[in-house]
Amino acid sequence: MTVLVADGNTRRARALSDDLRADPSLHVLSVPAGMALIDAVRQHQPDVVLVDMGRADRDALDSIRALSQPALERPVALFVDRDDVQLMETAFDIGICSYNVLDAPPDDVKPLLRAAIALYSRFQRTRGELTEAQRKLAEQKLVDQAKRLFMKNENATEDQAYRWFRRRAMQSARRIAAVAADYLSAHDRNDAP
């Protein structure tokens, strides 16, 4: 079975292709960068297309069956599993969908979609973790900057500065980073060491 992976995120496309290639019965192809999805489908004539829903050119594929002229030799249809609504909702929610090329509709699309969902979840989690790490770093930078300014303004030690911000944060039930940002705004940021 030929599977075409259409994902603008090259890292994710490679990871998904690698996952799928573990199954020797699958012939896995990717849409080259810059190539329209419909052109790739026309060229490779896959049985199944796994599509990143962030691709705006999905509309061209989606509507192919409505064309009165034969834009493709084999019609294409969105894969829908009516018995497994949750699978479908999860797939759309996480940003992946699947199309069947209908000459000989394959029976085993669900495992492919499940594999894609698992990989997309992993990427989403990793991206979430990365965002969280970046947020923490940015907050730490803000707190350090505010502490240095406080130490300079109040002739205080680093420990005293930290305790001052922590106390303020506890009193106002806010994060230390928010208190630090307010402190920097209230004083001239340019004065910050």
Binding site: M53, R55, R58, M88, F92
Partner: peptide
């Protein structure tokens, strides 16, 4: 949304 298909699928699959 990047595509009309996303709108249609979002409505159909409750996202």
């Amino acid at each position: 949304s990047p595509s009309w298909s996303n709108i249609a699928d979002g409505l159909a699959w409750r996202t």
